[in-house]
Amino acid sequence: MVVRTEWRLRQQSPRFKPQRRQAVSLTSRWIIGLLTAVYLLWLLVRTVGQPDWLTQLPALVSELLRLVEIGWLATLLVLWGLVWWHERQEAGQRLPPLKLEELYNLHPADFERYVARLFRQKGYKAAVRGRSGDLGVDLVLTRQGGKRAIVQCKRYRNTIGPDIVRELYGTLIHEGVSHAFLVTTADISESARAWAQGKPMTLIDGPTLVAIARSLQLSPPSSPKAS
């Protein structure tokens, strides 16, 4: 029953395909980063530490190690180049503006990726971080100047009250970021908006989210101002 329901919900939003590649891309980035760290550590040990066993290796083995180093470096350059190319390709793609009901019918993880791509089209660097123990942080944004912001995505039907906004503000302080976004498919109560007023927070309700997606269909990607 759960599988059939999930399939039916996805069929209702055929214009947006779940971005499973994004999750793979994030995992790949971690793996490539780990391989890069190991390579740099090896270079540090070989050039600075200069252990005795390295100097005592036969000439043939030393030559093989040198070839492995060159191949390792070339592989890392190719992998990072592919990551860069993938991000450039994704940044140039336009998302279809979904209706409010279509947004609600997305799987929560797909909704987070949809919002992340909207922020990327606005010129932000966006990383999906939603996982167990994430303190309500679904996305981490990086703006010009290196300033960071967090995004909480709420695929809700019921009106968002001030409690959720207060929790997000606490997370903003805990994370030490400069801004927080609340993006939801629901309405946001006046009391919640009043509580957020004057704080470094932006509240985006369902109709506003739909309007943003539509506007991005008509305008080129922009660069966020550093503030």
Rank of each mutant, 00 (worst) to 15 (best):
V2W: 13
V3F: 05
S13C: 14
R15D: 15
R15L: 15
K17W: 09
R20S: 13
V24L: 08
T27A: 11
S28R: 01
W30Q: 01
I32R: 00
L35Y: 01
T36P: 01
A37H: 00
A37F: 01
V38W: 00
V38D: 00
L40Q: 12
L40R: 13
L41P: 02
W42V: 07
V48D: 08
G49E: 02
Q50M: 07
P51N: 11
D52Y: 00
L54I: 02
P58V: 04
A59N: 02
L60F: 01
L60S: 00
L60G: 02
S62V: 00
E63N: 11
L64C: 03
L67H: 08
V68I: 13
V68K: 01
E69N: 11
G71W: 03
G71P: 04
A74N: 05
A74T: 09
L77C: 06
V78L: 10
W80Q: 09
W80E: 06
V83G: 03
W85K: 10
W85L: 15
R88K: 11
R88Q: 12
A91Y: 02
L95S: 15
P96T: 09
P97R: 04
L98V: 10
E101K: 13
E101Y: 05
E102Q: 15
H107I: 09
H107T: 11
P108R: 14
P108D: 15
P108H: 15
Y114P: 10
Y114S: 07
Y114Q: 06
V115N: 03
V115H: 07
V115D: 04
R117F: 03
F119S: 06
R120I: 10
Q121A: 05
K122H: 05
K122M: 15
Y124R: 05
Y124D: 05
K125Y: 02
G130E: 13
G130Y: 04
S132I: 13
L139W: 06
L139Q: 07
T142L: 12
T142P: 01
T142C: 10
Q144N: 08
K147N: 14
K147S: 14
A149S: 13
I150S: 06
C153M: 07
Y156R: 15
N158Q: 15
T159P: 03
D163T: 13
Y169Q: 10
G170V: 14
L172S: 10
V177I: 13
V177D: 12
S178T: 10
A180S: 09
A180E: 02
F181W: 14
L182M: 06
V183M: 07
V183R: 07
V183L: 11
T184F: 11
T184Y: 08
D187P: 01
I188R: 11
I188M: 11
I188A: 12
S189P: 05
S189T: 14
E190W: 08
E190K: 11
A192V: 10
A192D: 07
A192W: 06
A192R: 09
R193N: 12
A196I: 11
Q197W: 02
G198T: 04
P200N: 05
T202F: 00
T202Y: 01
V210S: 10
A211W: 03
A211H: 12
A213T: 13
A213L: 09
S215H: 10
L216C: 02
P220A: 12
S222H: 05
P224M: 12
A226H: 08
S227M: 04
S227P: 06
